[in-house]
Design a binder for these strands. Sequence first.
DNA 1: CGGGACGGCGTACGGCGTACGGCCCGTTGT
DNA 2: ACAACGGGCCGTACGCCGTACGCCGTCCCG
Lengths: 258, 258
Amino acid sequence: MASERRATADPARSLAILWRTREPTSRSAGLALTVDRIVRAAIAIADAEGLDALTMRRVAEALGVGTMSVYTYVPGKAELVDVMIDTAYGEMPREAVAGDWRARLERIARDNLALYRRHPWMLRAETTRPVLGPHLVAKYDHELSAVADIGLTDVEMDAVLTLVLGHVKSAARAASEVVDLERETGMTDGQWWQSHAPWLERFMSAGSYPTAARVGTAAGQQHGAAYGPEYAFEFGLQRVLDGISVVVAERAAAGEPA
Amino acid sequence: MASERRATADPARSLAILWRTREPTSRSAGLALTVDRIVRAAIAIADAEGLDALTMRRVAEALGVGTMSVYTYVPGKAELVDVMIDTAYGEMPREAVAGDWRARLERIARDNLALYRRHPWMLRAETTRPVLGPHLVAKYDHELSAVADIGLTDVEMDAVLTLVLGHVKSAARAASEVVDLERETGMTDGQWWQSHAPWLERFMSAGSYPTAARVGTAAGQQHGAAYGPEYAFEFGLQRVLDGISVVVAERAAAGEPA
DNA sequence: CGGGACGGCGTACGGCGTACGGCCCGTTGT
DNA sequence: ACAACGGGCCGTACGCCGTACGCCGTCCCG
């Protein structure tokens, strides 16, 4: 009963792929494909040409196999993307970071930004459900160590991480959009703006929203300098860390006198 | 020369639709369609069934016209989504908010959260290029007024807004994913977790990553209570505002003695 | 009252994800 | 040694999608 649609609601299968649970049989040598080869090919395509270019046919072609062969190893495209994501997380540094919590968190933020820069498709890979692969767990554990032992509750530690990583993702997305715009329209950000400005000015009937126009122009000029997203990241990160330091200080003050 | 692909790189056309520049001709009465009717129908579909259910055929069907008729008013789906976004922004409150900058920013954050709750598809509507419609401009202007006159530079004002709105979007997305997961799998968050947990435990070979397991469980329990995302939003918002207050205080201190 | 512009849309094309069923070959049981 | 089997591989096909193209009918303007 129930169950209805949604083909692969099979947790065991999906998780097994994520965790590479697959004892090598006597048969497995000499096979044309492996999950790893598929995932690597898929990531290469997405890195080079974006998520839209990632199709099952394209992946199969890159591997020199028939399209449907891929489905022998992966239940569907959604699951493939899940494994791609977890694999990408596996590339991140895991060494313990020196310094106080702020330095550690800052480092983690930059590591994540670097990841998104290397794999911009991750910013668009909307995965409804959590991935729960080995590398995500390892990443989570590693990042938790940056905020452990500074007086926060478990829930707060998670919330701090969520906040910082959320900011990184937002900033990375903004930066990536500038690049996408160029690729999609063939114009630089400045050119695009110039081609729209005259029309926009006409519609806005000069003088309405003076504040928006002034600030928008100021922000837009930075933006065009391809330094705007960078600034937004840095500014926001420091603000976020400042905000976190308030709680940390509170907890420290509450803990010591007792 | 140049120009190449990308069908509608015509700024005038796109902007004209966004701004509803269309002097009513003698003909226009009695027409079956208008951009507004199309956009309203599209938003209704996306609100009710999500962005995946939004297809041009579906929109046309809802309006009782042939699929291709929609293209008479809108160059393509991407532009339709742009107009949907700008239209949704038009629903937001615009009254001046009382209180200090913090109260004003907090209000703005909650207004944006409410918008995303009403129109979760906006969280997935990735629009490479900026929308630049009338309601977005009005919204921007309105939100700038919350941070004007507190000593920030233009660029900083923009960055503050970006930071706050980015956080809202992140939190809203997290909240929306819980709902999507339920709709997609037919299980509640708790059920989904329960069906995955035993497998996950087996793979993690009990004992590795104790921190991640503990904190993840704590955070996950909140999550399951459908109160987790709420908490993450509130916690993050206060942290962000705390962080902003540091700059504001700095600027105030630097400004007064001079 | 004739001509042209434009709203409306049927058809068709190329692409997608993927269900299904068959082929073929290595492995295993006798 | 050989038969039976299972599983990797994949050709074909289906039902979606966005949308290019060109026809048709109607209404406006001269």
